[in-house]
Design a protein around this nucleic acid. Structure first.
Lengths: 218, 218
DNA sequence: TGATCAGATATTGGATACAATATGCATTTT
DNA sequence: AAAATGCATATTGTATCCAATATCTGATCA
């Protein structure tokens, strides 16, 4: 067989297409907190029936991105300051441990990839993409841990506060500070200093929490 | 109004009935790992159409209790030893932190309730209920933390390894050891010694992990 | 004027019907 | 006989339809 084949069962179902699109719209903030999502409106927009839309909304609810109320529908869920802070503290517990266990397993390829992320982050002038670079950098470093459950939980956690992360980066010194701290973390990883990487990661996250608290408006 | 009213919107939908029943069947082991779940069959059993069954299966997948493969259906997902160990290590990270922050906020009522759980646990001779007592004890202590996101994640995590927890308790010294360790943790809480409670909790969980490793068969 | 109630409309939950895909078996082919 | 092929059956994915519930509007009444 010369043809370029791939597993068709991994092709997107209507449900997963709708889910991915809504998820992205929510974490980028295109769909604002509190917004009401009507099933048949979405169904018309995607040219599908309401069934896949409902299933997508259910998945979004499990991810904490919407709240479904019976016979009333789905609304994009926001976070109170207290809830957002708690999630930052959850990250401050989880991520240092993940990176601590990832450092001994990092290959040169991982470190190169991480530095490439840092550079791309620093060079990109489009704030819309900062969140993506940020996410990819952390994902690259953490993946080396091989801790699939930790990573699964972490991924969902980051989805839930992504809009607030983006807001952080848009603060006056947000982007500069993030670049500085990321460089420090990657350096610690390259030096095989797991404890320092963990400590810097924790400080990075708690710093973001404090910054969030000070800039809190909504 | 003298009548005992309650929020009808919290009444069980067909989806939630099916979900709860399947969830319970899986975590108690009534549905064994690898078992194939057919939508039709379940729908007939509950006298509903396949729609609520599908939605229940979707929720179960988000909880990690089944795996859905397109056009092939859902199978009850099991864990490899490595995956189970990782989840125990995740708990060993999360639960000590939760109890550390719960201790300063525990009222006498919480401690009384916890001791009642311990007693019920120790007295109950039906192994089928041990898992429930265990769960209720931890839930009681942890709830005082007020950390809703941590608790939400923890709840899902416990669902995922519940069958292995039950297996632990059935080991020769499993129940005696659990009772001993639980008493130590509750005592530390009563003494307002958050650090000791955290350390004991961590040891409790890592001990269970080690015990699991030694008794691993499947 | 303001609250209350009945009906109309909008929206979601669930059932039935149909389409797409997988699986197993018999048949054919070499 | 072993492998490949085509058909029949089983199962899931999605669309359409109906029922249950919420929400809105306007009329009625104190």
């Amino acid at each position: 067989m010369k043809i370029q084949a791939f597993d068709v069962s991994k092709a997107a179902s209507a449900t997963s297409i709708v889910f991915d699109a809504l998820r992205k719209a929510i974490i980028t903030g295109d769909l604002a907190e509190g917004e009401h999502l009507r099933q048949d409106e979405i169904a018309r927009a995607f040219n599908v029936s309401r069934i896949p839309v409902r299933e997508a909304l259910l998945k979004l609810e499990q991810h904490g991105l919407v709240r479904n109320q019976r016979y009333k529908g789905a609304v994009v869920s926001g976070l109170s300051l207290e809830e957002a802070e708690e999630i930052f503290e959850f990250r401050a517990l989880l991520e240092p441990e993940v990176i601590r266990r990832a450092v001994p397993r990092m290959t040169q390829a991982v470190l190169d990839e991480a530095r490439a992320c840092c550079d791309a982050f620093a060079r990109d002038t489009d704030p819309m993409r900062w969140g993506d670079h940020n996410r990819r950098l952390h994902a690259t470093l953490y993946a080396a841990s091989g801790l699939s459950y930790h990573l699964e939980v972490l991924h969902k956690t980051l989805d839930r506060i992504e809009p607030y992360l983006r807001a952080q980066l848009l603060l006056s010194d947000g982007i500069a500070r993030a670049n500085r701290e990321h460089k420090g973390i990657v350096d610690a990883c390259a030096a095989q200093d797991a404890e320092r990487a963990a400590a810097l990661t924790r400080a990075h996250i708690l710093g973001a929490r404090d910054s969030l608290r000070h800039s809190w408006s909504g």
